[in-house]
């Protein structure tokens, strides 16, 4: 039923190949966009969490040494 690949799209190559190229570009954009969005906000959350922890630690009173 299926033989060798037929990569000769003539006389419609000017329509077939741009369709596949645009599809590849759109998928690349979707992947890059999704990963960049997730990575950016994850890094921002972690940075804010560290800042919040440092501020909390600075607010705590220093522990007094009560050993005799």
């Amino acid at each position: 039923m299926f033989g060798m690949l037929d990569l000769d799209a003539s006389p419609y190559g000017a329509f077939v190949w741009p369709a596949f190229a645009i599809t590849a570009l759109v998928f690349a954009g979707m992947i890059a966009g999704a990963l960049a969005h997730a990575r950016h906000w994850r890094a921002r959350t972690e940075a804010l969490r560290k800042t919040a922890e440092a501020a909390e630690a600075a607010r705590r009173p220093p522990v007094q040494d009560v050993t005799p």
Binding site: A34, H40, W41, R44, T45, R49
Partner: peptide, 27 residues
């Protein structure tokens, strides 16, 4: 399948964004 994967990644990004905004507001 590609949509399933990308949707999950984007939702994860949204969860991180909302957490970041909550932390920024608290700060």
């Amino acid at each position: 399948s590609a949509f399933g994967s990308l949707w999950l990644v984007r939702i994860r990004g949204e969860v991180w964004r909302r957490r970041a905004e909550a932390l920024a507001l608290r700060a």
